[in-house]
């Protein structure tokens, strides 16, 4: 099975009149773990939605395995998207279904398999993410990290060629976040033909998993290359980003509240 690559050409995207991505031209290599990096609000999740086809671009192209998914006929587009697995930020598990039912959903809805076989497969996949003991739990009975792992299980049960992860480590403690990274790496080892794309602003996660990095800033791609090339870059923004340098922002943080507001706050604290 040949791995699928993803490329963007002069991509402009947004919501209504609000343009988020102004001009993105880049390619994510097939069979690699790519990390889309960037600050909050730079358009990372918007780019992910473009790959999935949940939003249409204002202009430009999004190519998956060489095919522009924006111009594909609906049936062909669905055939391409069927081979994508998506881990949403909070897992996006259906609250009315148990974990096993959630994970099994793509199989239940599309295949004519006996219920026992579907459940067995769901439990096997849940085992891969360490949740086989929680198959009959509902999403609201689990922690955030467990929900993400269950979301990952659901994303991989239909054997996707592209696995897209939206902030897989956000909101997790460092140990759970590292476990999530290891899980992605183990997925990559187990399915080397699967292209994994992770959207993140977590530098520790980047260090751990990225073969290829794409950095966004203000809706444009400012870097695309390997981790080594990223570290060797002398671009001031990239240097600041990698060094977690917030220089220039401390003046604003040090400003005091307006006197009237401060006086009111003081009165409230004293009351």
């Amino acid at each position: 099975m040949q791995a699928w690559d993803i490329s963007f050409s002069k991509l402009k995207a947004g919501y209504g009149s609000h343009v988020v991505l102004t001009d993105v031209t880049a390619a994510l290599p097939a069979g690699a773990v790519s990390v889309i990096l960037g600050g909050s609000g730079c358009g990372k999740s918007t780019l992910l939605r473009q790959i999935i086809g949940l939003s249409k671009p204002l202009s430009g192209e999004v190519r998956v395995a060489g095919r522009d998914i924006c111009t594909l006929p609906p049936a062909e587009f669905r055939r391409v998207r069927r081979r994508m697995g998506v881990l949403f930020q909070d897992g996006a598990l259906l609250g009315a279904l148990t974990l096993a039912q959630n994970v099994a959903l793509p199989l239940t809805e599309h295949l004519n398999l006996p219920a026992e076989a579907v459940r067995a497969e769901a439990v096997r996949i849940l085992g891969m993410v360490g949740l086989s003991d929680f198959a009959d739990f509902y999403p609201n009975e689990l922690s955030g990290g467990m929900r993400k792992r269950a979301g990952l299980a659901r994303a991989i049960i239909a054997q996707p060629r592209i696995l897209l992860c939206d902030e897989p480590t956000s909101g997790l403690d460092p140990i759970t976040a590292a476990r999530m990274d290891d899980l992605l790496l183990s997925m990559h080892r187990r399915f080397p033909e699967m292209t994994i794309v992770s959207v993140s602003h977590d530098l520790a996660s980047l260090n751990r998993i990225a073969d290829y990095v794409l950095v966004l800033r203000d809706g444009a791609c400012v870097f695309a290359g390997t981790q080594d090339a990223l570290r060797a870059s002398d671009d001031p923004y990239l240097v600041r980003f990698l060094n977690r340098d917030g220089a220039g922002d401390d003046a604003a943080a040090g400003e005091c509240a307006a006197p009237a507001v401060q006086a009111s706050l003081d009165r409230w604290f004293a009351s």
Partner: peptide, 21 residues
């Protein structure tokens, strides 16, 4: 709630028609 928590998007991504479901 399903809409704002991406559950409907998740259905669409799994090629499950959300209106039908």
């Amino acid at each position: 709630v399903m809409r704002i928590t991406d559950q409907i998007d998740a259905l669409d991504v799994m090629d499950i028609n959300s209106v039908a479901y």
